[in-house]
Design a protein around this nucleic acid. Structure first.
Lengths: 351, 351
DNA sequence: GGGAAAATTGTAACCGGTACCAATTTGAAA
DNA sequence: TTTCAAATTGGTACCGGTTACAATTTTCCC
């Protein structure tokens, strides 16, 4: 069933049918009604590829991320997908594992008649290739990553401010030995959050011992391992600020394993506010970077770029980080355990 | 830069260039070399939409799921994406929120020249529409869901067996009052897992009290709430088998909030083995349904269907559920806490 | 050297829409 | 009634590939 079939069935030309399909003016209401009813009756749908070829618009966006399995991304992807769907766009998902080869392969393949624009979520990508893309004027936007000195749209939180808020909160709880799990130095987020940590400490007149700063890689595993290192320090830090929730949850696990109570023995604060952070069993205090909104915003920037082309100046959107207070910082205590006596009794009854 | 440009630059015809692009035989090695070098030099990439229109193959798959934010799906999506990418396919992500309208809208739009096939991950979809799709012979496969009586490819675990293994394990720990958080009865997984629970109890000669079976909706929140209900029962169940990890984690939170130790006061077992279940802070014993492999398998079934058409009989792949033993079932104890004395000392030094 | 088969290459008609331009019809003013 | 602009509709050349078929060249064997 093609547009020509509809033309034949209705007795009109393909041009008129096309006009009806696209809601153009200069079509007699009666004609429109007749054609629409035939379209309806036959369940006709315009062919995507044909339309894309003719208009050179696919209404598909490409979303590149390192790994959807990392709990940060599903929420971003959801924000992107919802915003895209609301404006008639579909989303192609690409996992690159932070592998430059994969990134480039995806990009070059997607650029040619595949997608109308690309969203790079915390993508690595060397300067030269990104520069090349920008010069090509292919619509793209960076999310959760900055690239200074290049005229490109981007969305990210104010990382320095977010980190400062987290650390200041810990300080307000009376903590002085605050350790920090940072990320690889080639990630702009890591650098900025580390800076925020330093500034907050300095402004409070606290000095930072260098063994308090350990480098993770944003995985839960690395958070666990690095926290283990921190917990072996003497004197032990009384609080940890981890640069993402993943690592904070790992640190939580390390504390648990050592029998340290959170927040009584050690306070922990994360960054991101992934969904899990709010779980009753976790209750992680963290800095929200409004991941979902970041996804939405990335789409709206991208669509502006697609529709307005390079008549627009590149804009850098900065989201305001907000501290989400839960249990792990010390604002709420750990629930008391049911006394052992009670358990003994119950156990006896069981037998 | 089109194929005609390459033809002009090399002096050959578009047909020959096309043959080179597609690696067809009957091209002189020298010709191939020359054309390839020109393609290389100009960074030519064939236009996706044009190729799709000509061949009526898009090399895109559609993946429908309720919500990528649900921790079950990212891993599935990753399995799908990896398997697809390995065979030259891209994946379009669709969040339907289990909304039948959205599902149908996505499907009808994607079917026309958009994707070569669809993967329905635990999709609701009424019988009639699914039947219609099957009759249309559009390539599709069901993942994490069965549809009995319809000739359609599908992948799923053996839910009954998985549930039995989970419950039997709890029984082997000496539990007798084992409660169960099930899912909505319109979900085939829920029905089957509930059946497995019943069978395991029955085979062990344990009777099931009806208040031990509570209905959740697979969200963490519902796991939390239903566990709270279970914990208020007298006598309190000594173990809970939740039908997915999400709800099990919710139950963990409820236990924590009431000061109940897991596994000493209450054992908890989940289903799925999402990534989080292995976190040190959670350590959830669960039944793995090999989510990643499920995604891979779904793709391989779908591609077979796409390539072989209806010459293939529909196949139902059943994955073997394996019990992943961690802490929450009672095989490992909760680490002892560092004595309070020690904390006091530390606190004094702090001031 | 002749002739058939195989190898190589070219021509042009699709695929299913869109959109420019022209043709025709309609409506209103003159 | 004539005239002209606006409204409506049709014809057809694209978009950028693929591929059936034809044409040409080369290879091989007797």
């Amino acid at each position: 069933m093609t547009i020509r079939d509809i033309a034949r069935l209705t007795g009109y030309s393909v041009a008129t049918v096309s006009r009806v399909l696209n809601g153009y003016p200069h079509v007699h209401p009666q004609t429109r009604a007749r054609i629409l009813s035939v379209i309806q009756k036959n369940g006709f749908q315009p062919h995507h590829a044909a339309r894309a070829l003719a208009t050179s618009r696919t209404y598909i966006l490409g979303l590149l991320m390192s790994d959807i399995t990392n709990p940060f991304y599903p929420e971003l992807a959801r924000g992107v997908e919802d915003a895209a769907a609301a404006r008639g766009y579909r989303v192609i998902l690409c996992n690159t594992d932070g592998d430059l080869q994969k990134e480039r392969a995806y990009i070059t393949s997607l650029m040619r008649g595949h997608v109308d624009g690309l969203i790079f979520a915390s993508v690595r990508l060397d300067d030269s290739f990104l520069q090349y893309l920008v010069r090509q004027r292919f619509p793209l936007v960076l999310a959760n990553r900055r690239f200074y000195g290049l005229p490109v749209d981007s969305v990210a939180v104010d990382n320095v401010l977010g980190a400062k808020r987290a650390v200041s909160h810990l300080i307000s709880h009376g903590h002085q030995r605050i350790a920090h799990i940072t990320g690889p130095s080639y990630v702009s987020n890591a650098v900025e959050r580390l800076q925020g940590y330093r500034e907050a400490m300095e402004e409070a007149g606290l000095k930072v011992r260098k063994e308090w700063i350990v480098v993770g890689d944003f995985t839960r595993r690395s958070g666990y391992e690095k926290a283990m290192v921190l917990f072996s320090l003497k004197p032990r830090p009384t609080a940890i600020f981890a640069e993402n929730d993943n690592m904070a949850v790992g640190a939580l696990g390390a504390a648990f394993e050592l029998g340290l109570r959170v927040p009584e023995d050690v306070a922990i604060v994360g960054f991101d506010d992934i969904d899990l952070a709010g779980a009753e069993a976790i209750q992680l205090t963290t800095v929200s970077q409004h991941i979902y909104e970041m996804g939405e915003k990335a789409v709206s920037l991208l669509l502006q770029r697609i529709e307005a082309g390079d008549r627009r100046d590149p804009t850098q959107v900065t989201l305001d980080p907000t501290l989400i207070i839960r249990r792990s910082c010390g604002c709420q205590r750990t629930p008391a355990r049911i006394p052992t006596r009670y358990h003994k009794r119950r156990a006896q009854r069981d037998v």
